[in-house]
Design a protein around this nucleic acid. Structure first.
Lengths: 190, 190
DNA sequence: TTAATTATGTGACGATCGTCACAGGCTAAA
DNA sequence: TTTAGCCTGTGACGATCGTCACATAATTAA
């Protein structure tokens, strides 16, 4: 839990008292590789703070897995749309490696938020950080060609380029697996 | 301001008392068409609630305008990255029509947030809504081909298809103007 | 109103990407 | 070690997209 507290304090002022009030909303959980954190159709009422390992979100479009996002150590993973609005999720979240997370329970988190304004403020800052990242990815797709997208990703989010297998990364970048393979070849030959 | 209060109350419980505490952070502002709300390089310390008209955000990539987002009535426009982190903005926001907005001043908003937890909660909900929309656009680019993107946009955000000129919409969808024109032609001929 | 500017439609053509097919390499289980 | 399954690299080829060019329509300014 020490990592989580450091993460929280990097986002916002957070007293020891607030940390105590927050405890009931938290629980440690481990997942094996390929284990499911969130299933399509379920309502996402959790935030997953990642201590170790990484996971991905994907959705099925015409019987094909499309990777939406990858989440690494010291990040929050969730389906922001389902979590926020309370409707069923359109996507799945699965562990890509053995995974250790701290789960924030939505209901208990909201109760804790009412008891301590620093927790409410933490929620805002978590979502803000999440939104910033979403915005970057949204812009990446709009602004750049496939090759430039890979450049951008490797410079801004080096973990993705290094830890995510090519086939999965391709679907995240919105290109065919073969195209990404050829982009890599072109670059290593210079 | 009545529209704004309704908007707020659609997002979160909000007492008359909180509304009074919020007032110092708000001010009405009008812009002419093409007038600038936020300039690249400036730090974004405002949220713009749109009462009438619409605006867009764009950035310059190699001397070319790339449209990032469009914001219509009853939405919040801002640069979430600059507003959240306090660093200079990489994008511009300009009015696309005569525009009437309510400006939230960041500093005063944060002061009001400390005074009333409902205002803090409002902030969280505003950002959450903003994040959801960002996520949808990010996914749109990854999941769909250009033609499907237009279908998606017209079904989920019909105002964009109707009010935004083709050339600008094309850059938002990440395709050439000519391509979007041809997609439209193909569809109207069925 | 006219003139200037900007937005849109369209054809031609080259560049890029997606799809299909198959080969080789890596990993994990028998 | 062997086998099976998955991931990656690569060639061929058709589909789609971007770019350039120019014509026409719509909007704005004079």
């Amino acid at each position: 839990m020490e990592n989580l507290l450091l993460f929280i304090r990097s986002l916002t002022d957070f007293s020891d008292e607030a940390w105590i009030y927050l405890q009931p909303a938290l629980r440690l959980q481990e997942y094996r590789k390929n284990e499911v954190l969130l299933k399509e159709g379920d309502i996402c009422d959790k935030l997953f703070y990642i201590e170790k390992g990484y996971c991905k979100s994907y959705c099925m479009i015409e019987a094909e897995k499309k990777n939406i996002g990858f989440f690494f150590e010291d990040e929050i993973a969730t389906d922001i749309q389902s979590f926020g609005c309370g409707h069923p999720s359109a996507l799945n979240i699965v562990a890509c490696e053995p995974l250790a997370v701290v789960i924030f329970d939505k209901k208990k988190l909201f109760e804790a938020s009412s008891q301590h304004i620093e927790i409410e403020r933490l929620g805002r800052n978590c979502i803000r950080q999440f939104a910033s990242k979403q915005a970057e990815f949204a812009n990446m797709a709009k602004l750049y060609k496939p090759q430039e997208r890979l450049d951008f990703l490797e410079s801004q989010f080096p973990e993705m380029g290094q830890r995510v297998p090519l086939t999965q990364l391709a679907s995240f970048l919105g290109v065919a697996r073969e195209t990404l393979s050829r982009i890599r070849r072109r670059r290593t030959h210079y």
